[in-house]
Computed example of a mutant assay.
Amino acid sequence: MKFTIPLPLAAFALVGVLLTGPVLAAGEELVVYKDPNCGCCGAWATHMREHGFAVREVATQEMGLVKSEAGVPRALGSCHTATVGGYVIEGHVPADDVRRLLDEKPALAGLAVPGMPQGSPGMEGPYPPQRYEVIGFDGKGGTKVYARH
């Protein structure tokens, strides 16, 4: 038996992809490890959902251990750590940069936005946005600027 999507549903799905970007393939869930008392981490998870990512939030008091096991360099630390597609995403990295990482598949361990720059995804607010960099890092201590915002 062949399964077909009714035309109205297929059109609705296409509009959703055009508005939010491609939906990640099965197995591409973004898992966010965060302190249960941190509000900006949840705001970042919402930003990622709004950009088409399937997000699972894991509250933990052991963020130091999570970062260490994920290989996040201490100098690149932020408040939350995520994994997706075999990469580590540290801090308030914009969804477009994560999508680019997954599309291009560079030889990196992950991306990081050190600290909590005002105006980055999840850190929007009444204060003027700061300029910040998204840093690509490998598993050997190497880093490079991946994007500037």
Rank of each mutant, 00 (worst) to 15 (best):
M1H: 15
V55Y: 09
W44Q: 01
Q61R: 12
M1E: 11
S120I: 03
S68F: 02
D96H: 13
L18T: 14
P22T: 14
V93G: 02
T20W: 10
G91A: 07
G64H: 07
G16F: 14
K2E: 13
R131Q: 10
K144V: 14
V17E: 13
E62Q: 09
H92T: 04
R148C: 07
V23P: 11
R56Y: 12
L101D: 03
G85S: 10
G71W: 02
H47I: 05
I89D: 05
R148T: 11
W44M: 07
V145E: 02
L65P: 00
A10S: 14
V93C: 02
E69P: 05
P73Q: 01
A43P: 04
W44G: 06
P94F: 05
L14E: 15
Y127H: 11
Y87K: 04
G139I: 07
P114Q: 02
K34I: 00
H149G: 12
A26C: 15
G16S: 14
A75Y: 09
G27H: 14
V88A: 05
P8K: 00
M48W: 05
T20Q: 10
V134N: 05
V134W: 03
F3L: 11
Y127V: 10
G91V: 02
G91Q: 01
E57R: 05
H47K: 01
M116K: 02
L102E: 02
S120K: 06
V145M: 06
T4P: 14
R148W: 10
A107N: 09
P129C: 11
A59G: 10
A82W: 06
E69I: 11
A112D: 06
M1S: 13
G136H: 03
E29G: 14
E62P: 08
P114A: 05
A13E: 14
E50M: 11
L9H: 12
V66S: 02
R100G: 09
G27T: 15
G125K: 01
L7I: 13
A95W: 02
R100H: 11
G142I: 04
A10Y: 15
P126D: 11
R74F: 12
P114I: 04
Q118K: 09
M63Y: 02
V55R: 03
E57V: 09
L76A: 03
Q118D: 04
G115V: 09
G91E: 06
A54Y: 10
P36V: 05
P117S: 08
P129L: 10
L7R: 14
A13I: 13
G139L: 01
P73G: 06
D96A: 15
V31G: 05
T4W: 15
P36L: 00
P114H: 04
F53C: 01
V23I: 14
V98H: 08
G91I: 05
G110V: 00
N37Y: 08
S78Y: 02
L30P: 08
V72T: 04
C38Q: 06
G110T: 06
C79A: 07
Y87P: 03
F3H: 11
V58T: 12
G85K: 03
P114E: 00
Q61P: 12
A13Y: 15
Y132G: 03
V84P: 01
V98W: 09
